[in-house]
Amino acid sequence: MKIRLNLLSQLLVFMVDNINAGVIGMGKMGILHTGILNSLNGVNVKGVAEKQDLILKPIRQLLPSIGTYNDYLDMIKKENLDLIYITTPTSFHANIALDCLDHGIPFFVEKPLGISVDDCKPLIEAVRKKPVINMIGYSKRFVDTFTKAKEIIDSGILGELIYFNSSMYVSQLFSKGKGWRYKKEASGGGVLSTLAAHLVDLLVWFFGEVSLVEGHTKSYYSKDVEDFVHAYLLFEGGLGGYMDTSWSVRNHRLPEIKIEVHGEKGMLVVTDDYVKIYTDQEARWKNYYKQDLYAGVEFDLGGPEYTREDRHMIESVKQKQDTGLDILEGFKVQKVVDGIYKSASTNSAVEGDEL
């Protein structure tokens, strides 16, 4: 009898902890998150929403236990969901998140938060009035090397930070692009909005709030969005430096980030693959490679950072606690991105209340 009661108790705990998730948008990121979520203990993907039947048909055939919907509101009404992932084109993010808020359902939204600051403001105001657990998909914060760099910067070992230089490149576009990412009304912008928002997020995470930006953009392959961006960023703490990004640079098969930080007592260089730190006190370089820092994950699809990101979201929902990477963090990035676009269009710096 005692054994049966113990088993029943364990079963009830499992039922309480079990998370029923829904995914809206079954493009690359929707498929990725669905796969990861289904691999995590205590998580069930109960429904997916996608407008295109061509995409839903194989899901119905291969995963008949998952509900499939053309209208995400039907999924919200019919499935008992504890969490929703929003992985649609950027222009839909804010409105879908507002619907999640209206139903009191925690949500995860892929980056960027929206197509503009104005697009995001109603969501930010709503979540402040009616908060639910939420998270934005700035997955680079879960990469071992960038986590280590954050730890080193926060330790103060570099002393006062003086200057930084940063870049993010990928060999993606060398002819006219096809799809929503190359249409400003759907994506919000080109390489800066859809790719280098990751770099902006890391810089804000490392250094704090931005007080001034000055940006320049260039379109060569694209008609409606930018292919190249160069910007100067000044942070409230006084640190200033540059970021450069393009999806039209050769010899970068995968997106590559590099951030170089110069301080009063040394310097740091971090990429997706390594962290290197030089201190005047030791007068030598100390290297940390990703294989040395790596902590395994239960399922690796697209990179371990995505599993860590999803695991963090799930645990936050289970524990009913803030994710530490909510849409307010995403809004900080949105303001910097918008500031760079505004600066580029007016050929002048943007600062203060304009950000």
Rank of each mutant, 00 (worst) to 15 (best):
R4A: 07
R4Q: 12
L5K: 14
N6A: 04
N6I: 03
L11T: 12
V16K: 14
V16L: 11
D17G: 13
I19F: 08
N20D: 10
I24W: 06
G25L: 08
M29Q: 08
M29A: 11
L37S: 03
L37K: 00
N38A: 11
S39C: 05
N41F: 06
K46H: 09
G47N: 10
E50Y: 02
L54I: 13
L54R: 15
Q61L: 15
Q61T: 09
L63D: 03
L63S: 14
G67Y: 09
G67L: 08
N70M: 12
Y72V: 09
L73G: 03
I76K: 00
K77P: 00
I84N: 00
Y85M: 06
Y85N: 04
P89W: 09
F92S: 09
P106T: 01
I115Q: 02
S116W: 03
D118M: 02
C120F: 02
K121P: 05
K121L: 15
L123I: 02
I124M: 13
K129A: 13
K129Y: 05
M135P: 00
I136V: 13
I136P: 09
I136D: 00
G137C: 03
Y138V: 00
K140A: 09
K150W: 10
I153P: 08
D154C: 02
S155H: 05
I157A: 10
L158V: 07
L158I: 05
G159I: 02
I162D: 11
Y163L: 14
N165M: 01
M168A: 12
Y169D: 02
V170D: 01
Q172F: 15
L173T: 11
S175C: 14
S175G: 13
S175L: 07
K178R: 13
K178A: 08
W180V: 06
W180L: 01
Y182V: 09
Y182K: 05
Y182S: 03
K184D: 00
K184A: 01
E185Q: 13
A186K: 15
G188E: 12
G189V: 12
A197V: 10
L202E: 10
E209H: 05
V210L: 09
V210F: 10
V213P: 06
E214C: 15
K218D: 00
S219V: 06
A231C: 01
Y232I: 13
L234D: 12
L234K: 15
F235H: 03
G237I: 11
L239Y: 06
L239G: 03
L239T: 04
L239Q: 05
Y242C: 03
R250P: 03
H252K: 14
R253D: 11
H262I: 15
G263Q: 08
G266S: 02
V269P: 05
I277Q: 06
Q281S: 14
Q281V: 13
Y288D: 02
Q291E: 14
D292L: 10
D300G: 05
P304V: 11
Y306V: 11
T307D: 02
T307F: 11
R308P: 05
H312L: 08
I314C: 07
S316T: 01
Q321W: 01
D322R: 15
G324E: 07
E329V: 01
Y341L: 06
Y341W: 00
K342Y: 04
N347L: 04
S348Q: 13
V350E: 02
